[in-house]
Design a protein around this nucleic acid. Structure first.
Lengths: 206, 206
DNA sequence: GTCTATACACCGATAGAC
DNA sequence: GTCTATCGGTGTATAGAC
């Protein structure tokens, strides 16, 4: 009669501790850089000794792994919450997606390094943590199909283009908008290339 | 009478040792990964103890710095050696440049991480080492001007696009050509966008 | 000048006491 | 589950041999 709720409480507590560790890890990563994250620093802020973290995560990379899944889950949520007007033209939809991705990437350097670059030496996400990432890609693919774009190459081209803009922005002009200003233009470029219909509401100026 | 040649010899020897260290560092970086490079491993292969490297470089990052300058110098040389046919159309020139950059980037993961990504935690190239890199960018800019493209935005767009393709190739399909196949297509896309004249030699099929 | 030996502070990770 | 103690490894500072 008592055991089951006790076990629930324990599992709950355990999960809460894991969450706290991951949250603190994000905090440290944003402050000092993703690679400068150390177990001792995380443990200090959580109020533990460093080795105690191994009760909750099997290694430092396991923490990175949880952060990776975390980040992509957040992105999926972000995309799902973006209002998609019913009467949006294909180009507007593409612009919306591209800007959502770009803004999300540029908003957090450490997060983008973990999500989209191979910046941590030995780290490779586990299949489970990779789930939300492939989920996000599938959502984009489906959206492209909805626009009449069915090919893998077209998806790859878009991903590389917007990803390239985001990486260039973070690497060469962090906090600025030198590359951010190019997102809409880049979208129009691919839209033309994919022969999406032009926006008809307003004829393009000049 | 003796001092000057002696000093020359010494400087020569010193420079040779520096070169050897950098070469060995590249070797290690390619074998074990750029970030997994350790001073002890480099020193062992050169036939020194680790602290002795500090006679020639003030820190590990100073070695990365020399490697950075090295890589971009190599790229400049590579670009200069690419034959540019006199009768090449603007699109062909752009294709040539893009493929040269892409192939160079994809040929060596460690080198690309150092040149084009922020993969080493504390490392920032010194202004001197940055020289060849800005040299390469200026060359590209000049080439674009030669094609009638004068804007900064257009250059940025091209750089981000090809860079994005290269990074995606290395990150998601190393050794393959899933993104490499898209380079020519990407070039044509920007060429259309920049309203470069179509290749006239052969009318496009279909 | 060039290299070595030693040492230090820090890291991720493990073992075992409580 | 958390602790202390410790291990092997890292970059790097320094003192001194040659």
């Amino acid at each position: 009669m008592l055991e089951v709720p006790n076990r629930d409480r324990q599992a709950e507590r355990r999960e809460a501790t894991r969450r706290e560790i991951v949250d603190v890890a994000w905090e440290v990563a944003r402050e000092k850089g993703l690679a400068q994250l150390t177990l001792r620093e995380v443990a200090d802020r959580v109020g533990m000794r460093a080795p105690s973290l191994y009760t909750h995560f099997s290694s430092k990379n396991a923490i990175y792994d949880a952060m990776f899944a975390d980040a992509w889950s957040d992105y999926v949520t972000t995309v799902e919450q973006v209002a998609r007007p019913e009467d949006a033209t294909p180009r507007e939809v593409l612009r919306l997606i591209a800007n959502t991705f770009f803004d999300f990437a540029v908003a957090d350097l450490a997060r983008n390094q973990l999500m989209n670059q191979r910046t941590i030496p030995g780290f490779e996400p586990t299949p489970e943590s990779y789930g939300p990432a492939v989920r996000a890609l599938e959502m984009f693919h489906a959206e492209m199909v909805g626009l009449g774009i069915h090919g893998q190459e077209e998806v790859d081209l878009c991903v590389a283009l917007i990803g390239g803009l985001a990486d260039a922005q973070l690497a060469n002009d962090p906090g600025g908008d030198r590359w951010g200003r190019l997102v809409d233009r880049a979208v129009d470029m691919v839209a033309d290339h994919l022969e999406l219909p032009p926006d008809s509401s307003q004829p393009p100026e000049e």
